[in-house]
Design a protein around this nucleic acid. Structure first.
Length: 322
DNA sequence: TATAAGGAAGGTC
DNA sequence: GACCTTCCTTATA
């Protein structure tokens, strides 16, 4: 591949510790794609393990073909502001103009991070496509492409061989399969592969639609250092993540929305979608609503989230509303 | 069948 | 130890 910023190494040899040589042949055409400078995010936690991460210096093909080396995130220009605990998050904007401004800045930064995460996923999928020499849309994959993608996924996750369970399948076949179908073929890894494929499909759909307007403007108007100043690379909490989604109704109202913002009551409209987003954020491809909801229920004891007085399915309430 | 609730064990920081 | 993640059982709409 001769695109700028790419270093071609062909053929690319992948030495899988427990696979036969014949399995490496799928990737003979693949090329090493050198990342373009630093990742905008520079956040290891935001990297998706199924795709190449732009914030890596390079692929170390000798030591471990798929071990990614992370570059250091740009240092914040000022000491990072501590994320407030939920008990401290008071709806004080009306009374205190300074904290109101602070809230607006925080909300804006959260939005920027969100849109940049989407951008990073798109870039990562695109880079993986170049590396594997396959189309970004799984619907366009041939049987060979499917096997390449599976082999790639096996390597990245250090999975036991699973590609043999999905032989003679095109990308279109894969896309028409349900999660149960995946589990039927691989009880152990079906869930994860299904979720991983779903990310690729989502990325292809987003690519087709084009980047969101606000992601463009965020990149144009604000430097990453600005974001890092007020939003350090700390592990994000689930309640924070849910609030991020709720603060972007334009993008996420179809999967999560306020029922009563003043009281902090919200509804998860698309549980699978929210779980998938959370899985992306946390590098947990096997995340599902069952697990996510368990995490939400952990907040009951902590007094962060509870069920509303009138309990309804998929409806929760922040104990301390925004 | 999907969701809710919560116990238990384990992983990561 | 905090904060999940994963797996599980039981209950309910």
């Amino acid at each position: 591949m001769g695109s700028p910023g790419c270093t071609v190494h062909s053929p690319l040899h992948i030495s899988h510790h427990d696979h036969s040589d014949t399995r490496t042949a799928w990737l003979d055409e693949a090329e090493e794609v050198k990342p373009t400078a630093h990742s905008l995010l520079g956040l290891p936690e935001l990297s998706w393990p199924g795709v190449y991460v732009p914030c890596c210096d390079r692929l170390d093909m000798e030591e471990n073909p798929w071990v990614l080396r992370m570059t250091e995130a740009p240092a914040p220009a000022a000491p990072p502001a501590r994320t407030p605990e939920p008990s401290q998050a008071k709806p004080s904007q009306a009374q205190d103009p300074a904290s109101g401004m602070e809230g607006q800045v925080e909300e804006r930064c959260l939005e920027q991070v969100q849109t940049m995460v989407v951008g990073e996923v798109l870039k990562d999928v695109e880079t993986a496509c170049k590396l594997l020499n396959i189309a970004s849309d799984p619907l366009d994959w041939s049987c060979v492409h499917v096997q390449k993608w599976l082999l790639w996924t096996e390597h990245l996750y250090r999975l036991p061989q699973v590609s043999s369970m999905f032989q003679e399948l095109t990308g279109r076949d894969l896309c028409s399969m349900t999660e149960a179908d995946f589990r039927q073929r691989s009880l152990q890894l079906g869930d994860m592969l299904y979720a991983h494929l779903d990310i690729w499909r989502s990325a292809a759909a987003m690519k087709e639609r084009g980047p969101p307007e606000d992601s463009k403007s965020a990149a144009d108007e604000d430097s990453w250092s600005d974001v890092m100043c007020s939003y350090p690379s700390q592990p994000i909490h689930l309640w924070q993540f849910l609030r991020e989604l709720l603060l972007k109704p334009h993008n996420y109202s179809r999967c999560i929305r306020w029922l009563n913002k003043e009281k902090g009551i919200f509804k998860i409209e698309d549980s699978a979608h929210v779980a998938r987003l959370w899985g992306i954020r946390k590098n947990r491809p096997a995340m599902n609503y069952d697990k996510l909801s368990r995490s939400i229920r952990q907040y009951y004891k902590k007094g962060i989230i509870r069920k509303p007085d009138v309990s309804r399915r998929l409806v929760y309430q922040f104990v301390n509303p925004v």
